[in-house]
């Protein structure tokens, strides 16, 4: 599913974000990436999304080596991923439903499927009653759930969530993590970055990746899947 071999990433200003990382994430695996700010969590997700190119090493996502892909192939690959951005990237002036639909309009779904998947995704995140509310009128927690709904409505093989629990209270954060972890049972790989280590202490059947200064240590709990 995801394979990183001897991957390093150095930004233009000389900052070494990732240092010689080897990592394999299998199909249906639930992975939490933790670590302090600046440890490289977001950089790692950006690499997997094809938003950054590694300075050295190879990144393989959904069995495709990113450095070998043309822009059209990167686009096709992104269509198979359900991203939840740290800053959400919802479009203001649209309802929650329109935002979810926007993420799937260009995928190979029929009109009926699109609507069905979008409504279903909002229902899964507990927001079916707010599907016609403008996103700017939602609380941060609700907007976060809309962003998750947009990701899961795409029926992705891989969900990448960058700090989905940031700025949330404990109950909402647990709720969000439960929603994301539920996709593990559907053979969808889920990679979540989070600061909230206390929330994942009790999680079973997960892989915890701890990051520090661009390096990783991996802990598998249960069978990881």
């Amino acid at each position: 599913m995801i394979e990183l071999k001897e991957v390093s990433l150095r930004y233009g200003d000389g900052t070494l974000a990732l240092n010689n990382i080897d990592l394999t994430i299998g199909s249906g695996e639930l992975v939490y990436i933790t670590g302090p700010s600046g440890s490289g969590k977001t950089s790692l997700l950006k690499l997997i999304m094809g938003m950054e190119n590694p300075t050295s090493g190879t990144v393989k996502v959904l069995d495709k080596t990113l450095s070998e892909l043309k822009s059209k192939d990167i686009r096709c690959l992104r269509q198979r991923v359900g991203p939840v951005f740290q800053e959400l990237k919802l479009v203001p002036g649209r309802s929650a439903l329109e935002n979810v639909l926007m993420g799937i309009r260009f995928l190979e779904f029929s009109r009926k499927e699109m609507r069905e998947y979008a409504i279903d995704a909002l229902k899964k995140v507990g927001l079916s009653h707010k599907s016609h509310s403008m996103v700017e009128n939602l609380s941060w927690g609700e907007a976060q759930r809309v962003a998750i709904a947009r990701a899961i409505a795409r029926k992705p093989g891989l969900i990448l969530a960058d700090e989905p629990t940031g700025n949330l209270d404990q109950d909402n954060a647990v709720n969000i993590l439960n929603i994301l972890s539920s996709f593990q049972q559907q053979n969808t790989s889920v990679v979540v970055t989070t600061h909230a280590t206390h929330l994942i202490e009790s999680q079973k059947n997960t892989t915890i990746i701890r990051m520090s200064q661009g390096t990783i240590s991996v802990e598998k709990r249960g069978d990881g899947i």
Partner: peptide
């Protein structure tokens, strides 16, 4: 536009 790019829109 950036978001749509990241989501894989053509």
């Amino acid at each position: 536009i950036k978001t749509l790019h990241l989501l894989g829109a053509s």
